[in-house]
């Protein structure tokens, strides 16, 4: 499997944030995105997930499901956790399991075990019946990250995944990402805090060079 980014250009408003960016990631590779604030790390990840329209260029996943869009084969972990405060931990996970894994014909048993693995991995088992709104920031983050383990998707786009996690949880996260890469997955992470993880490659983004003159 190979994620190919070809001559990608992304604009936000009138500002070109990314232009002429070409690279590819093979499966079993992890890529670390670095760059100062405002260099377009989040923009790039969101563009890959399909949230932001591409101004030019293409993003495609070679060897993935043909009819599905790239975004449908990605996990995107952004600044927000995507959990419902009114639901318990279990209800949150069950919904994502049904919704994101909806295409697969999994048996009830298989789904349960997926959920249980995720709970154990991120040490959430004791919190199963607690409303997500009552969790601490770090626990909420772990609940959001549990999606990664629970629903199998080949590409992981992680934007500052370790925010509000403690040292121990960062280790868990690093282990999860490492296992995903070793299992043939692709991971891209933008992070300032070292995850304690060896990435195969690093992509350095610079501050956008060109701002289009409109009124000139």
């Amino acid at each position: 499997m190979r994620l190919i980014i070809d001559e990608l250009a992304v604009k936000r408003g009138l500002r070109t944030i990314i232009s002429g960016l070409s690279f590819h990631i093979e499966s079993k590779e992890g890529l670390l995105l670095t760059g100062p604030n405002g260099s377009g790390k989040t923009t790039l990840l969101r563009a890959l997930a399909g949230f932001i329209e591409h101004d030019a260029g293409t993003v495609r996943l070679e060897g993935g499901a043909d009819e599905a869009e790239v975004g449908e084969q990605c996990h995107y972990v952004g600044h927000k956790n995507g959990i419902k405060h009114g639901f318990t931990v279990a209800e949150n996970l069950d919904f994502w399991l049904d919704y994101l894994g909806g295409a697969e014909d999994d048996t009830g048993q298989g789904k349960r075990s997926c959920r249980d693995t995720a709970l154990e991995t991120f040490e959430l088992t004791n919190l199963l019946d607690i409303p997500a709104g009552m969790l601490s920031a770090g626990q909420k983050r772990r609940l959001g990250l549990a999606r990664l383990v629970m629903v199998k998707r080949p590409v992981w786009l992680l934007d500052e995944p370790s925010v509000s996690l403690d040292v121990h949880s960062v280790k868990i996260l690093a282990g999860v990402v490492e296992e995903h890469i070793r299992g043939g997955g692709i991971a891209m992470a933008a992070t300032h805090i070292p995850l304690g993880l060896e990435f195969n490659r690093t992509l350095q983004l610079g501050i956008a060079q060109e701002t289009e003159e409109v009124f000139g």
């Binding site: 997930a49 399909g50 599905a68 449908e72 990605c74 995107y76 927000k80 994101l100």
Partner: peptide
């Protein structure tokens, strides 16, 4: 607000 929409958008629907 809580980011659920982003995850929903990545679903197959």
């Amino acid at each position: 607000e809580d980011g659920t929409l982003e995850v929903i958008a990545l679903g197959a629907m």
